[in-house]
Design a protein around this nucleic acid. Structure first.
Ligand SMILES: [Mn+2]
Ligand SMILES: [Mn+2]
Ligand SMILES: [Zn+2]
Ligand SMILES: [Zn+2]
Lengths: 143, 143
DNA sequence: ATGCGAATAATAATAGTTCTCATTTGCAAT
DNA sequence: ATTGCAAATGAGAACTATTATTATTCGCAT
C-alpha cells in the first residue's frame, strides 16, 4: 500500500537509493508515526534491510530538508521524525508511557502569530509540547 | 544586591557550599538570564571562582529539582536554565542572534489546558518555543 | 557498457552530559 | 575549638546522540 517509488525521491532532488527507499517506506508503512534515528535503524535491521546508522542520520536530515519529514525535539535528548503530511500540528507526550498524541488548535496558532508580530518577530516555526499523564488506567502504550 | 544567603539553600534542603552559592549568585546577579551549564562554568571561572564542570551540571539539576531554577530545551541540543521567578512564561528565540524574549499569553495557556483535558491527559507542564527573526535591522543581541 | 559524481558504511571524532571514586568540606555533637 | 561522618566536590572516565572522514560502491546519464 503506497510503497514509495523512485519518483518520490527524484522530485525532492535526491537520487533513488536502497537505504532512502527503505527509510521512506518505513515511515509510509505507518507502523510507527514518530521515530528516532535509532528506532529507524532497528526497524530496518529487524526487517532484514542492512544499513549503516550514519546513513540513517544523513538520510533523515536530508528528508527533513526536502520536507519529506518533520523533526521534533521532545524532552529526552533525541530527535524524533515523522512523515510530513502537510498539516502542522502540535503534540501531547505522555510521561508514563511515551505515547504521543497530536492536536491542532487554531486559537493557539493565531495567538502565537499575534504575540510574535506584536514584538517585532517574523516567525519561522514553533514547537508546542504538552507533557502529561494519560489519565486512564491501562495507559495503552509501552514506555 | 540580593546576594544569596545560606538560608536560601537550606530551605531548599541543600547544604550551603561554595559552588552552590556561587552558582545561585550568578543567576541572581541578573547579568544573563538564560544560561547553559557551559555558560555558568565559564562565568564562574572568569570571575575567579574555581569549580568543576561536573559540579555545575549536578548543582543545576539539583536547583531544578528544588525549583530554584527552570530548565529549557531549546533547539541546539543543550539545556538552558533560568531563575525560577514563580511566574510561568514561554519564549521566542531569535534565529539570527540567539536573543530570547519572554512572553505570557493567558489565552494560549487556557486553550492548552482545554485541549489536554478534552483528550484525557493530566498536564504536568509544557514548552512553547517560537523560533523567529528579529525583524528590526541591527538585531541588538550577539549570537 | 562506461565513467564519474554522489551515496554508502565503517569507523573515528565531537558535544553534551552523567558516572565513579578518592579527597575535601559542612556542620552537628561533643 | 575539635572531632566524626555523611554529603559534596573535582578530575577524569564513560556514555549517548550525532556528525565527520574516507575508502569503496552505486545510480544513472551518456
Ligand atoms: Mn506528529
Ligand atoms: Mn525565560
Ligand atoms: Zn502549533
Ligand atoms: Zn506557556
Amino acid at each position: 500500500m503506497d510503497k514509495p517509488q523512485p519518483e518520490h525521491l527524484k522530485s525532492a532532488g535526491l537520487k533513488s537509493t536502497v537505504p532512502r527507499l527503505n527509510i521512506l517506506n518505513l515511515f509510509k508503512s505507518g507502523q510507527e508515526r514518530h521515530m528516532s534515528a535509532e528506532d529507524v535503524y532497528k526497524h530496518l535491521l529487524a526487517s532484514g534491510d542492512d544499513v549503516g546508522l550514519a546513513t540513517v542520520y544523513r538520510v533523515l536530515t536530508q528528508f527533513e530538508q526536502a520536507k519529506l519529514l518533520v523533526r521534533h525535539n521532545f524532552e529526552g535528548g533525541k530527535s524524533v521524525f515523522e512523515l510530513n503530511q502537510g498539516k502542522h500540528h502540535d503534540h501531547i507526550v505522555c510521561l508514563q508511557c511515551g505515547h504521543v498524541e497530536e492536536f491542532y488548535d487554531a486559537a493557539i496558532e493565531s495567538r502565537q502569530k499575534k504575540v510574535a508580530s506584536e514584538r517585532g518577530f517574523a516567525v519561522h516555526d514553533h514547537s508546542l509540547h504538552i507533557y502529561a499523564d494519560c489519565v486512564r488506567k491501562n495507559c495503552p502504550h509501552k514506555r
